[in-house]
């Protein structure tokens, strides 16, 4: 099978940088003296790599995972625009079984990395909100599909750009997204209309909130409803990030700066 080996050589020929996705310690060890140093992309830095990009979500799709890793590499200065990147990742097995090559900057810079790392809210908080949204998208509420809108970060400004639809169920409560009991509460309250407002530190400030941002000039794809429009508009007016679970197509979308930066199918997680 020399031909296959040659093909592999072609793929990895003169790459500027190597990205290892969730490598085992032994794999990472074998790259110890590599020049330039490899970049490890994983949910946690288990191998104590010097150059490391944290994956906030377990992206099932390899495309998303690589895209996130490369954007993170660009953001952290491990990569230059136009660099050739060799990526080794797992696709079918639990360890690395796939090698591919991308050019940094081939993806349009979606800001999915910045969504987690450069937002006002803590990355942990945004991740927890995603998890809640994905969970909600998977199971629905009592078997029925639900929609939900979470506005995360810059809560003071968001509260001033919105009004209550009724009494706030979270008034004088001190629950944070990620607390075990919260999943159930959010599931129940998602039946109510309106948005959830979450502060930078993850405190659930309010639900049942009617957002009142100026929606002129918000450009989101046609066919998405009022919930997405409101999410796009509030993230343009404030420094918040919005995570929307669509009731009609069941996808989870994230907005930042008025634009969609990430689209996920809950069924894939």
């Amino acid at each position: 099978m020399d031909e296959l080996g040659a093909l592999l050589d072609d793929i990895v020929a003169d790459v500027d940088s190597v990205f290892l996705f969730s490598p085992s310690a032994s794999v990472h060890e074998s790259f110890a003296d590599a020049e330039p140093p490899v970049v490890v992309v994983a949910p946690e830095n288990a191998v104590d790599a010097e150059r490391y990009v944290e994956l906030p979500l377990e992206f099932r799709s390899l495309r998303e995972r690589i895209r996130f890793g490369v954007e993170g590499g660009l953001d952290d200065g491990y990569l230059e625009e136009g660099d050739q990147v060799g990526c080794a990742a797992e696709l079918f097995a639990d360890d690395i079984d796939t090698v591919t090559r991308v050019r940094a900057g081939d993806f349009d810079h979606s800001g999915v990395y910045g969504l987690f790392v450069n937002s006002r809210a803590d990355p942990e908080v945004i991740r927890n909100v995603f998890e809640v949204a994905i969970e909600l998208g998977k199971k629905g509420q009592k078997g029925k599909r639900v929609g939900a809108l979470f506005v995360v970060g810059d809560a003071g400004k968001v509260m001033n750009n919105s009004r209550p639809l009724s009494y706030n169920p979270f008034e004088k409560s001190h629950v944070h997204v990620g607390d075990p009991i919260v999943d159930v509460m959010l599931k129940e309250f998602s039946r109510l209309d309106g948005a959830f407002v979450v502060s930078d530190a993850g405190k659930i400030v309010s639900s049942y909130r009617y957002l009142e941002p100026a929606a002129e000039g918000v450009d989101i794809p046609k066919g998405l409803g009022a919930r997405h429009m409101a999410a796009g508009a509030i993230t343009r007016d404030t420094n918040a990030v919005a995570v929307v679970l669509s009731e009609s197509d069941g996808l989870v979308r994230a907005f930042s700066g008025g634009e969609i930066v990430l689209e996920l199918d809950p069924e894939e997680y």
């Binding site: 809560a155 003071g156 509260m159 001033n160 008034e171 400030v205 309010s206």
Partner: peptide, 8 residues
């Protein structure tokens, strides 16, 4: 909670 998030 004499004042809360969002109050001036």
């Amino acid at each position: 909670e004499p004042y809360s998030i969002g109050d001036e």
